Lab assay of single mutants.
Amino acid sequence: AQEYRALYDYTAQNPDELDLSAGDILEVILEGEDGWWTVERNGQRGFVPGSYLEKL
């Protein structure tokens, strides 16, 4: 798994998404072809927009 940093804040719109704060460090589990990536942070897993992340 790769570590990424959130570039922007994101507020989850659905229960299966995660909130992001700019600067958060996340582990990317799966890069979805639809642009939604499965990530894990502090034991929580959910979808976030891949375009909001940069690889560390």
Rank of each mutant, 00 (worst) to 15 (best):
N42K: 09
W37G: 02
G32P: 08
L56E: 07
I25E: 08
D9I: 03
Y52K: 05
N42E: 15
Q44V: 14
E27L: 14
I29D: 05
D19M: 06
A22K: 13
S51H: 09
T11E: 14
R45M: 14
G32H: 11
E27Q: 14
D16W: 09
G35F: 03
V39L: 01
S51W: 14
N42C: 10
L7V: 12
A6N: 00
T11N: 06
L26A: 06
V39E: 01
R41Y: 08
P15Y: 07
A1Q: 02
R45A: 07
P15R: 10
R41M: 12
Y4A: 10
D9G: 08
L26P: 02
E31S: 10
V39T: 03
L53V: 15
L18E: 02
G23V: 00
G23C: 02
A12I: 00
N14F: 06
F47C: 13
D19S: 11
D34E: 09
T38S: 11
G43A: 08
L18Y: 02
R45E: 07
Y4H: 07
D24T: 04
L26T: 05
L56C: 05
Y8Q: 15
D24M: 05
L26M: 13
Y4I: 06
G32R: 14
L26Q: 03
Y10L: 01
G50E: 15
G43D: 08
V28H: 03
N14G: 11
F47M: 15
V48M: 00
L53D: 01
I25D: 05
Q13F: 03
D9A: 11
I29Y: 07
A12T: 04
T11K: 14
V48N: 00
L18T: 03
L30V: 15
G46F: 04
G32S: 14
L20H: 00
T11H: 11
G46M: 02
E3A: 07
A1P: 09
E27P: 05
Q13K: 15
Y4L: 03
P49H: 05
G35H: 03
A6P: 00
W37M: 12
E54Q: 09
V48S: 01
L26W: 03
D34I: 02
Q44E: 07
R5Q: 14
Q2E: 12
G23P: 00
A12M: 04
